[in-house]
Design a protein around this nucleic acid. Structure first.
Length: 666
RNA sequence: GCCGACGUAGCUCAACGGUAGAGCACAGCUUUCGUAAAGCUGAGGUUGUGAGUUCGAUUCUCACCGUCGGCCCCA
């Protein structure tokens, strides 16, 4: 008997029974055998040392060039780290899981341990040293397969209770299992699916990055394990580049830039998670909100305003209370009354506005919009700059419409959200459809309504041609939603825009409109927020632009920099002209040298600087300098104003830098 | 909330069991300057808060508050 192997190039080759992919690689070339990491047999990843069964197969040898190889490398790195931790902290260490991560911006792998003593990041040096020792030994990794009963017995003997639990789960799983695989490297054995590197010596570039707590199985009722994150690459240069990338990304952090640029502040005295908008940050918000208000008017929204608190009972009706009690600020007591809540959502208030008048089918859809500030008691450990706060605003609106109107309205919300992202150049987002988790009881309303709403959403995203993923369990408690999810500077995901279809709150609140048949009908609601929240959105925006906002959003659009006090009057006059033309301008009349003024304005990321000296005063011109493009030369102030106005109005698609570039090209 | 780390001047950071220092920023003076940092002088701190150990704590211990990284959660 023999095996027939078909290679990716289409060629086939016969081998003896039980040949391994390592041997096959060797038969192709010694070079391939040296760099081989693992193999893919009939689409499944296997170890190089796995003997191949008789028959016809396709086989691909993985080398560091293949993307899958990184996963194998990092997975083995996690095992080597586990062995290092065992060597240092002894046999009382309990092992749980240690997966490779290939999509994460920072981390390449982690391992969760239950440790007999506490470990801190200061210990990384000695763990890394131990890992280096293990790598240097070039110990082969050997796969061992046991029956579940044998595996369980061994793990029980070794006191590895988490592994015992995992084996029990494997046994109880629907498919059942015939074997449980382990990997041995020297005297260290860990239960693992594999595949792994052929030996530990291939791990040459790695670094431990962070230490964190993590609940066993992600359940906060369980014990907190110690998670160590690290990363690994095939060569040291890639690792160094990766670490540079992380360091570079961290410079965009909105919490650092927000402080440096004076955009917002958080004060211990006011309270955690309650951002304060400083004058320059407020400009960004007002510009963004003003633009969005204009878009809403065009789309037939009506602006409303509602108070920050409401009776507790309102939220019982909506279902927010007591379901979300853990996420609410405590009730404000009110004598005989049940008390009031700081509103965690605007929808109950908007619903009352809908209810405050009799509604006819002729006036649907009713689109009520409000930049409504809400308060949610986020857990202290969850707070994060502007991206996770306790007091924030939603660019909220609730659309009340008929079933016939619903999908067009959803589509319009998608269009608006995309317009917002496109206008700001946020093109790296993903779309998530949050569905209810069929096994959970946290959702309100009838199953038929949920099915309908989920179908409405699918219809729209398909029509619009959005790429999306469906994620059960991500729905709001009253309805499924379309979320626009964006990464921050270190790769964490944040939900910005959201569109939620809701058949349930109209029912809970008994909403109606009179149809053309002169009988009452129930409207459907859409909850939507294209920014999500200006706080979070601007937090992400700060990182997206690295603080260098486009002209229309820039807190200071033009810095006027007189070369010396001799031209102070001319500079003041030009400043006044710009101000009168609605430009946000700052005059730097400090007794600094021009280089220092330029430096200051550049660090403040002011888009345009006007350098004004005797020459410009004599010629009645301004010398324009761009924060990144440098000197643009002299121009008449009226021409400068019309150019930057064009850049402001077109949100940057037409800008002075382009004009100058064109001139240079000519 | 949980695990871990951190908290010193407005900011970034240093130092130390004997009550703290630099750079930038700030103020005053000098300089009036041409495309990313002029010079001098000065002011600025109950070392997050509270307790404990100690002759003495900012330093060591504990608690609390806050921040950061994860976990859980996210209407």
């Amino acid at each position: 008997m023999s095996i027939t192997i078909q290679f990716p190039d289409g060629n086939s080759q016969q081998y003896d029974s039980q040949t391994t992919s390592a041997q096959i690689a060797e038969s192709i070339s010694g070079g391939l055998a040296r760099v081989a990491v693992a193999a893919v047999l009939n689409g499944c990843q296997i170890d190089l040392s796995t003997p191949i069964e008789d028959g016809e197969h396709t086989l691909r040898i993985l080398t560091p060039r293949d993307p899958e190889s990184l996963e194998v490398l990092r997975h083995t790195a996690a095992h080597i780290m586990a062995q290092a931790v065992r060597n240092l902290y002894g046999d009382k260490v309990q092992y749980t899981i240690g997966p490779a991560l290939t999509d994460d911006f920072q981390y390449g792998f982690y391992y969760d341990f239950d440790l007999p003593e506490s470990v801190s990041a200061d210990d990384f040096g000695k763990i890394e040293a131990e890992m280096k020792k293990i790598a240097k030994s070039k110990t082969p990794l050997e796969r061992i397969e046991l029956t579940p009963a044998e595996a369980k017995q061994q793990m029980t003997e070794l006191g590895q209770s988490y592994k015992v639990e995992m084996i029990d789960d494997l046994i109880a799983s629907e498919e059942g299992v015939e074997t449980v695989s382990f990997y041995r490297q020297g005297d260290f054995v860990d239960m693992c699916r594999g595949p792994h590197l052929p030996n530990t010596g291939k791990l040459k570039a790695f670094k431990l990055l962070t230490l964190a707590g993590a609940y066993w199985r992600g359940d906060e009722k369980n014990k907190t394990l110690t998670r160590i994150y690290g990363t690994a690459f095939f060569d040291k240069k890639e690792l160094a580049e990766h670490l540079d990338r992380i360091a570079e990304a961290k410079k965009r952090d909105h919490r650092i830039l927000g402080k440096q640029l004076g955009l917002f502040a958080l004060s211990d005295d006011v309270g955690p998670g309650l951002p304060l908008w400083m004058p320059k940050g407020t400009i960004i918000r007002m510009e963004l909100e003003g633009w969005l208000r204009g878009q809403l008017l065009k789309r037939g929204y009506q602006a409303v305003m509602t108070p920050h608190i409401g009776k507790l009972d309102l939220y019982r009706t909506s279902g927010h209370y007591p379901y979300y009690e853990h996420g609410l600020f405590p009730t404000l007591p009110m004598g005989e009354d049940e008390g009031y809540l700081l509103k965690p959502m605007n929808c109950p208030h908007h619903i009352q506005i809908y209810k405050a008048a009799q509604r006819s089918y002729r006036e649907l859809p009713v689109r009520l919009s409000e930049f409504g500030t809400v308060y949610r008691f986020e857990k202290s450990g969850d707070l994060n700059g502007l991206t996770r706060v306790r007091g924030f605003t939603q660019d909220d609106a609730h659309i009340f419409c008929s079933p016939e109107q619903l999908e067009a309205e959803i589509a319009s919300c998608v269009e608006l959200t995309k317009l917002v992202l496109d206008t700001l150049g946020l093109d790296q987002y993903r779309v998530r459809i949050g569905l209810r988790d069929p096994d959970s009881s946290k959702y309100t309303g009838k199953s038929e309504n949920w099915d309908l709403a989920e179908q409405n959403i699918r219809n729209v995203v398909r029509d619009v041609g959005l790429e999306y993923t469906e994620e059960p369990g991500e729905a709001a408690f009253y309805g499924p939603k379309i979320d626009f999810v964006i990464n921050d500077c270190i790769g964490r995901e944040w939900q910005l825009g959201t569109i939620q279809v809701d058949y349930n709150l109209p029912e809970r609140f008994g909403l109606e409109y009179i149809g053309s048949d002169n009988t009452p009908h129930r409207p459907i609601m859409i909850h939507r927020a294209p920014l999500g929240s200006p706080e979070r959105f601007i937090g992400i925006l700060i990182e997206h632009f690295a603080g260098a906002f486009p002209l229309w959003l820039a807190p200071v659009q033009v810095a006027v920099l007189p070369v010396s006090e001799k031209c102070a009057d001319y500079a003041a006059e030009q400043t006044r002209i710009l101000k009168n033309n609605g430009i946000r301008v700052e005059l730097d009349d400090s007794p600094e040298k021009i280089g220092a003024k330029i430096r200051r304005a550049t660090l403040d990321k002011v888009p345009y600087m006007l350098i004004l000296g005797q020459k410009e005063a004599d010629a009645n011109t301004v010398a324009v300098r761009h924060r990144t493009e440098g000197d643009f030369g002299e121009v008449d102030i009226t021409e400068f104003i019309s150019e930057i106005n064009a850049e402001i109005e077109t949100k940057g698609s037409q800008c002075v830098a382009n004009r100058v570039q064109e001139q240079e090209d000519r």
